[in-house]
Design a protein around this nucleic acid. Sequence first.
DNA 1: CCTTGACCTTACAGTTACTGGAAGCTTTAT
DNA 2: ATAAAGCTTCCAGTAACTGTAAGGTCAAGG
Lengths: 132, 132
Amino acid sequence: MNISEAAKQSGLPSKTIRYYEDIGIVKPDRAGNGYRSYSDNDVHQLAFVQRARSLGFTIEECKLLLSLYSNDQRASADVKLLALNKIEQIDQKIRELKSLKSTLSNLSKNCHGDQKPDCPILEDLASHRNLK
Amino acid sequence: MNISEAAKQSGLPSKTIRYYEDIGIVKPDRAGNGYRSYSDNDVHQLAFVQRARSLGFTIEECKLLLSLYSNDQRASADVKLLALNKIEQIDQKIRELKSLKSTLSNLSKNCHGDQKPDCPILEDLASHRNLK
DNA sequence: CCTTGACCTTACAGTTACTGGAAGCTTTAT
DNA sequence: ATAAAGCTTCCAGTAACTGTAAGGTCAAGG
């Protein structure tokens, strides 16, 4: 099938599929006219990557997951470790964002938000004290 | 003062300070030898940006905040709106990350994580069902 | 047969916010 | 005098695409 059909079936934009080819993720055959020709297996792999990316795995991790996927000898422990690490990264990011939110909330709470120029948010940004 | 002193005082790497000059954030004077020469006010602005960046504001938002900061006529409402929008963005991101985490946790929970190749995580990635 | 429009190709630039490195001045210290 | 530290500019690389331009190919309609 041509790239637009592969795009439809995998849930990825054609542009992204070409990019994935550039970086060596899925290399389709070529038809006589030079068009890319995708097999069902190609599309399956693309959809796999699409799902893994949407779960927050990086491209490099996706490559690893794909290689594990196509390796009959893999240990599920390898995959699980990757997933648990990813969960830890996500937790870390959530902690950071909560801390940011709390700081910004405190700043906003003290700001009148009116037409007057007096603004504690800017004052905090300008000072070096950390209103945490 | 030279750039390394400005770096020390602002908490930003010299490299970043030069980059900020390129994109028009702080333009220092130049000494006779071509070295950048930072005033206390320059450093103050750099520190302001450093703090705003660490709170999750984009460079564009930092420019806006800086211009509001140096505008005596600003309304604190303008700044507060920016902060509240940022808080909303952070909340959205936290929601997304929590959802990702929950999906990954479910997948991991069902994975033995042993030396056998049987792996529900990979199976889920390969299928199109969404184990949410 | 010709044209139109949809679809395909490659290649290059742009995005965000820096970071690293090379090549080459200037200043400072020994 | 020389070496180290600090400064300069410029170019490339990061992550993961996205946009755009210029042009080849294919199927349908007149």
